[in-house]
Design a protein around this nucleic acid. Structure first.
Lengths: 356, 356
DNA sequence: CTGAAAGCGCTAACAA
DNA sequence: TTGTTAGCGCTTTCAG
């Protein structure tokens, strides 16, 4: 494998000059540059990344850790599929032009947080992005001890590290308020997410906030799901046993996947959505042609989350002295048909942040 | 940032000894080991990856290049979403335990193949996985000049590099044969993929092969889509103008996304699937609750593709002398309802490779 | 069992 | 404008 020395020798110059040509510095005489370039081409020389990193004291690599929720059913993964992928693209789009690289690793949420595997990552990158907030604080701290860390979609309360997250609370409040105001819903059922998920908690808070503002509206039922379509299906079944002849006006699901499952159960039972009951989700992971009826939901700017988190991380790497900061990105209300809006009104409305 | 020297000094040993402890070598006296370990913990020492790579002459990193097809519509991306993600997980699962890392980069299919950006990757990894076959040969060769390369889902004809791909042809033949044999379909319409996609070509070949075996069956129409749901929708519309009153027995779509679009068009036009016409797809990207009716399709083992490709790459890295090889993984027929199978018979059948 | 020291391939300060 | 050279932090012989 050709090295810098080989190139230098072939071109009859020093390694410093080759390095200069390589990095486009202009203090090289054109004729020399030409000679060097020819040698590079001839040898098919590509600089060794490890040596560059070592010498520069910077790797130009950022790490992305994705939490893998234990998957009971195949479709549990499907959320994270789209989610992770969008994030990934956001991040990658950001670093691509800078010519940095992205090192990715999945982390099994059930694994030992003290395993050295993950902390080893901090030796391979200049900074780390952690996707999802439910990440062991101890591990987070260990990573952060060595490189800057930005948490995506984390609870807002992380102390040491930066957080970039969507405004789950306002989004949730907005979609619920829409149901109450524009469709006159009064009796709601809530299909909540898993107890430990920070975003589920935020969404619940948004729901409660919206309800509080409408004295005549309230929950007539509430259950926990696991964010999977399967669990939405089950939630639907439970709802049918308890409220078959006493349908609520609307069901508010903590994410789209559960909403899809629920929709399916209702369809099987011959219950019409939105005529008999409205259903809404959260995330906007399905294009509108993928559910019947198309699902009203709240759009989470996943790609943007990735981009912003990446920007922040790069800033942090450039200036480690920066103060940890929380960034909350606005969501969008996506009106389709499952909430009761007429077929024509497909629309998106920005959700403005409300004070919490 | 603590280095090996810091640890050595604190523990009162040489760097060689620390290195030994770090890598669990057993020729270290337990008491020494303890002392060193304590120093490591105390300093929160994590070895520098770049230095390790340089010294070992191996980076323990593999690169994954994902081709990004130019996206006209949002949903074009959606295929690759699930696809890429499954692949990613397959690969990652494989290297995780070996403590290798995964460097990922998306490549815009429309970008300049001579840009140095991508070839730089070959200096940062020990080997490269290329997802999807339609990759400029020149670039492929340039990468391969420096590190081993395995192409996933590529045309089988690549010369120099290894290829791991699904048996698109047999899968396609199997689903078509199913339509002919078990549902008595005779008059088919084909919604093909883009002209330059190697997998679309294979699937078309499978279709033709199946038809050839049934003299009384044949195509009554054929059109090209772009693999997007949108293009499936349009294909459906075109089909309605030409065959509204002359429905075929079945529509064979080159992938699931187009099938979903088509399904949507048919539903709007009040055409019942599978009563009026059967529809099948390819890929198995939708869980059965995501379409109405659930889509009969061919399962492509995406995750397995990732794993196998990764295995092969690692072998290749370990022994660069290995001969380039093509691996074709079997698919599965996934019977759901859109082909006409009764609601009960959801089933999966392995597809055995047929001679091409 | 432990230590000394020679690299790994590149960058960048300094000298020329 | 170009060359010399001292590291970057780690691994790994080779000696002891």
């Amino acid at each position: 494998m050709a090295t810098l020395y080989d190139v230098a020798k072939l071109a009859g110059v020093s390694t410093a000059t080759v390095s200069r040509v390589l990095h486009g510095q202009d203090l090289v005489r054109p004729s020399t540059r030409g000679r060097v370039q020819r040698a590079i081409d001839e040898l098919g020389y590509v600089p060794d990344g490890a040596a560059q990193s070592l010498s520069r004291r910077r790797k130009n690599v950022i790490g992305l850790i994705c939490i893998e929720r234990p998957a009971h059913h195949q479709d549990v993964e499907n959320t994270s599929l789209t989610y992770t992928d969008e994030l990934l693209r956001g991040v990658e789009a950001r670093i691509r032009d800078l010519d940095w690289s992205l090192l990715i690793r999945f982390w099994d949420g059930a694994a030992d947080p003290d395993s050295p595997r993950l902390s080893a990552m901090s030796g391979k990158v200049d900074g780390i992005l952690v996707s999802e907030g439910s990440f062991p604080a101890r591990l987070l701290e260990r990573l952060h001890r060595r490189v800057p860390v930005v948490v995506i979609a984390g609870a807002r309360a992380e102390r040491e590290v930066d957080v970039v997250t969507a405004d789950n609370r306002s989004g949730s409040a907005a979609v619920v308020t829409h149901l109450l105001h524009e469709h006159g819903a009064r009796r709601l059922i809530h299909v909540d997410g898993p107890p430990n998920a920070p975003d589920a908690a935020e969404r619940r808070a948004g729901l409660e906030q919206a309800l509080k503002a409408h004295p005549r509206a309230g929950l007539v039922g509430s259950m926990h799901g696991s964010f999977s379509a399967e669990s939405g299906l089950e939630a639907g079944e439970r709802m049918l046993t308890t409220h078959r002849h006493d349908m609520p006006d609307a069901v508010v699901c903590a994410n789209d996947l559960m909403a899809i499952g629920l929709l399916r159960t209702l369809a099987r039972a011959g219950i019409q959505v939105p005529q008999d009951v409205a259903v809404v989700g959260f995330d906007d992971i399905f294009p509108d042609h993928l559910s019947e009826p198309p699902l009203t939901t709240v759009h989470q700017p996943m790609r943007l989350l990735g981009e912003r988190a990446c920007d922040r991380l790069l800033d942090r790497i450039a200036d480690p002295g920066l103060h940890p900061d929380v960034q909350v990105l606005p969501t969008e209300l996506v009106l389709r048909r499952s909430c009761g809006c007429p077929p024509g009104t497909v629309g998106r409305r920005p959700v403005s942040p409300n004070e919490h």
